[in-house]
């Protein structure tokens, strides 16, 4: 399925979870937080094409 992440379209397997999404995007869960429909979501949260997903990189230097 196609999902929008921070305004970008990303293709992932259907019935995927937040953890699958991060894996597909090659992002380290240790450095990111994910909001699904405006709320923070755990790795096991299922996402569908209707969802609005925001992936935030939160580990920074400085």
């Amino acid at each position: 399925m196609e999902i929008t992440v921070d305004g970008r379209k990303v293709r992932i397997r259907s019935a995927s979870t937040v953890a699958d999404l991060l894996g597909a995007l090659k992002l380290n869960p240790e450095e990111t937080l994910v909001k699904v429909n405006g709320k923070l979501a755990p790795g096991g949260k299922r996402i569908s094409p209707k969802d609005s997903v925001r992936v935030m990189r939160v580990i920074f230097g400085g």
């Binding site: 979870t17 869960p29 923070l40 979501a41 755990p42 790795g43 096991g44 949260k45």
Partner: peptide, 23 residues
């Protein structure tokens, strides 16, 4: 990649979880 906690429920109260703490 190490697996994130499989459940999306709070470990303490069973309500919907907001965060996975792998450590």
């Amino acid at each position: 990649m190490a697996k994130l906690a499989a459940s999306s429920k709070c470990f303490k109260c069973g309500k919907p979880a907001a965060i996975s703490l792998n450590y």
